[in-house]
Simulated assay, not measured.
Amino acid sequence: MKVIHHTRPQADVTVNGVTITAEAIAAEAQNHPMPRGKPGWAWRAAAGALVLREILLQEARARGIAPAAIELEADKWETEDEALIRQLLEEAIAPAVVDEARLRAVYDAAPDRFRGPSLFEAAHILFPAAADDAQARAAALERAHAVLAELRRNPGRFSVLAAEHSACPSRTNGGLLGQLASGDTVPEFEAALATMDEGSISENPVETRYGVHLIRLDARVRGDTLPFASVLPQLRAAQEKTDWVHASRAYVQALTGRAQVTGIDLRQTSWLNAQEPA
């Protein structure tokens, strides 16, 4: 692959003679928020994404693929370019043959990972704050720490303090949430429950999209270990996805290696080497 560097920032890029303008790259950069301390990252990421798209479209057209858009959801269809890229990858990347014995070895190495839903009985005190409101979050955390300090002195006051401070309707019942199954609560809340001992109160306030919680775990019943046959479809799907990602990356790298690209060093693009540029 021949790469020619431009000295000025935000220059045009070409792919096998097809120009991707700096204006198009700047527009695409809006979809790539810049990480802190990485000036120029958004432009490089946007340029890399457009280069990849152009390489794939050129290959699809060279193969004579006719776009056949599919409906993604009700009244929302693929664009012609999206259809071409999807069809190219379907044609070029053969489905991997998953070795069931390999999946069995994964299961046997840690069967405890594969359990049915756990059941929890818990109570909480909610201090509401939107996830994007830093001031409200800070105030909620301060209130939660103050109440937690009181709970450490007198855990038996949980119900009373829930009635006084919680913004959840469960406050009228001492913060009791009843029986919860895996998946009934947001992931952050469930993760906290999974690490707590029965009868304990969370060591620190727990933040979720709803605000800040103090949690008491009253009881837990862990789900039974699931038999291999019942988790096999899940394991197979995960392995097929992993294999497809590896195969598609190798395919893209091969196409890129044959392309003549000017204006950007593709070694700095995360989609090519599976890591973010420094």
Rank of each mutant, 00 (worst) to 15 (best):
M1T: 03
T7M: 12
R8K: 07
P9A: 03
V13T: 03
T14C: 04
N16T: 04
I20G: 03
T21A: 01
A22S: 12
A27D: 04
N31Q: 14
H32P: 07
R36H: 12
G37H: 07
G40W: 06
A45R: 05
A49M: 10
A49W: 03
R53D: 05
R53L: 06
L56R: 05
R61A: 14
R63A: 05
G64C: 06
I70C: 11
A74L: 12
D75I: 07
Q87F: 04
L89T: 00
L89R: 07
E91S: 13
A92D: 00
I93A: 03
V97I: 01
E100S: 02
L103V: 01
V106P: 07
V106Y: 02
D108R: 06
D112L: 09
L119K: 10
F120K: 04
E121M: 06
F127G: 06
A139L: 10
A140T: 10
H145Q: 15
V147C: 10
L151D: 12
P155T: 11
F158E: 13
S159T: 15
L161N: 11
A162W: 10
S166Q: 09
A167W: 09
C168T: 15
S170Y: 13
T172Y: 13
T172Q: 15
N173Q: 15
G174K: 11
Q179M: 15
G183K: 13
T185Q: 14
E188S: 11
T195C: 10
S202I: 04
E203Y: 09
V206F: 01
V206K: 00
Y210V: 03
L214Q: 03
L214D: 01
R216F: 04
R220V: 14
L226P: 03
S230K: 08
V231E: 02
L235Y: 01
K241C: 11
D243M: 10
H246G: 08
S248L: 01
R249Q: 10
L255T: 00
G257D: 08
I264Q: 04
T269C: 14
S270D: 14
W271H: 10
E276C: 12
E276P: 07
P277S: 14
